[in-house]
Amino acid sequence: MTGRPIISIAGVRLSFGGVAALDGVDLEVPEGQIVGIIGPNGAGKTTLFDCISGFRRPDSGSITLHGSPQGDVELTSRAPYERTALGIGRTFQNARLFKSMPIRDILRAVQHDRMKRSGFFRSVLGLGGSVLDEQEVTDRADEVLELVGLSAHGDKPAMELSTGMLRLCELAAVVAVRPRLLLLDEPSSGIAQKETEALGPLLRRLAEYLNATLLMIEHDMPLIMGISDTMIAMAGGRVITVGPPAEVREHPEVLTSYLGAKATA
């Protein structure tokens, strides 16, 4: 454990019409680890992701990204695309992508920030290094496609993919952006149990490939227990406990609020 946090969340609160979705979240995510977030429905996990990636603005509290190209950055006033540029990537619970675009084009589109030599006129006229930029992002797209095993499907539009392939494609897209902090919202949802077991090693490998910190929400206990270095348990908009997976699983509050609830369901 490096101990150094990549992101610090302090006192983040957000309510929707009187209901506190996040009720004072304090959290430090250690850099370079795979960190799993568990918690029952409505615990505020996705809302927390929305706050980190910029799709929701907390009512109060601060979120600070450490060690970005611009140093330590307070995120709460930044737009989602600025946060992407600072090295935060995320996927969505329901595997959302650009449905009409062929996969290879999606993987090229998401790298647009890397194309420094491709302003409007230079791209359209094919001048000033924009051709080289194109070549680079295409090579990168092919590399990432191979990484997730979708090379054979590069020309298919996303909407023609099955749920499992769409998940892989989404992972490929977020990897192509090369984030330092990768937020995955239930990567196993919508795919069959058997495949979930193969997903763990793939996620680990992607994190290593990017040399990134991986923060993931997951309901599949074997999967998340298997790959997490650190686990966070949330309930009622608050962090209950943080620690090694085995400890978190045995934490009494986790047992009652999460596993207990699951057992009765």
Binding site: A79, T84, G89, S100
Partner: peptide
Amino acid sequence: GRMKATRVGRSFFAIRDSETVASAYGIRP
């Protein structure tokens, strides 16, 4: 046609398909 095949065109398609997802990938709507 050039625009469609390069960076600018791809950003257009991304915005067309979903502004939210586009901004999650760093594209400025």
